[in-house]
């Protein structure tokens, strides 16, 4: 039985629920979880019910890393830290945007905790608005495709690099579609002393507009097209990159999602898709994926 109990209000096929389950099952009972506001927090804790089988706290949207810092400091001061793992699990909005300050401070202070970003590439809980993690040309409710727009014109913020620049001893990317790999990385991150970070790709069927049954399938396409590189960084050095043998063109990933559909129907869309392909190509070169 998972430590994330059923009966929660996540969508059928929810990527955040998968992520939460994998994190808890990788880490076990001796874990304290801090959540910022977001889908995972809201659908798991409608008072008086909670899906969390471990101690859990939600404070505000932008302060999960600061709250986690405080939990860590308290356990140390009380002499109760032992092997208890402290994990903050937050969405991309809470992590890359509004929570960036608190994360920066927590990593710079060097608290012994792990921050896991569950990245579904938009502010999903409030209705699919763009965030700093929304990829190029994704259509969201605040960056919609339209007569004169191909959707989000901005590039995805490179959060793992920002964390690595803080001197974190362990940074990794993962995906809910590659569960054993994700759990291995989460476990490793929790075991490494100091502030560690795992950035998890989480395909959201509701926000990205695909059938709930395809969550894992879409996640695999992201990796197989090099749109989501899987790698680890240990003390700032990239290690253990997942290489791709038969890399697929990005169209295979884009065409199964409603948020990119406009690229296939609008005039000039094909040209714009090349820019997305360029991102995948850059990933391959930069991370040495082939």
């Amino acid at each position: 039985m998972s430590l994330l109990k059923p009966g929660h209000r996540g969508c059928a096929g929810c990527c955040d629920a998968l992520a939460g389950k994998f994190v808890l099952d990788a880490l076990g009972e001796d874990t304290i979880v801090v959540s910022p506001t977001g889908c995972l927090e809201v659908f798991t804790t409608p008072y008086p019910e909670s899906a969390w089988g471990v101690p859990w706290i939600h404070s505000l949207f932008e302060n999960a890393a600061a709250v986690a810092s405080g939990v860590e400091a308290a356990l140390k001061a009380l002499g109760k830290k032992n092997n208890t793992k402290i994990v903050a699990i937050g969405g991309d909005g809470a992590t890359l945007d509004i929570g960036l300050q608190a994360i920066s401070g927590a990593f710079e202070r060097g608290h012994d905790f792990t921050y896991i970003c569950v990245d579904n590439e938009a502010y999903m809980n409030t209705g699919v608005q763009r965030s700093g993690a929304t990829p190029l040309y994704a259509s969201t409710t605040t960056s919609p495709a339209g007569k004169v727009s191909f959707g989000n014109p901005l590039h995805k913020k490179n959060m793992p690099a920002i964390i690595a620049a803080h001197g974190s001893p362990y940074v990794a990317t993962a995906s809910v579609a590659y569960a054993p790999d994700m759990m291995r990385k989460v476990k490793k991150a929790a075991e490494v002393k100091g502030p560690t970070y795992v950035h998890v790709h989480a395909p959201c069927c509701t926000g990205w507009r695909f059938e709930g049954s395809k969550t894992v399938e879409v996640g695999k396409l992201a990796v197989e097209t090099a749109m989501w590189p899987l790698y680890e960084m240990e003390n700032g050095v990239i290690t253990n990159v997942r290489k791709l043998k038969n890399r697929k063109p990005v169209e295979e990933y884009l065409k199964v999602q409603g948020r990119f559909k406009h690229l296939f129907t609008m005039q000039g869309g094909t040209e714009e898709i090349k820019k997305i392909q360029a991102i995948a190509d850059w990933n391959v070169k930069h991370f040495g994926m082939e």
């Binding site: 706290i57 404070s59 505000l60 600061a66 986690a68 405080g70 400091a73 308290a74």
Partner: peptide, 9 residues
């Protein structure tokens, strides 16, 4: 925020 976490702990 840190104190919220600490106090809760």
């Amino acid at each position: 925020s840190a104190l919220i976490g600490s106090s809760a702990a």
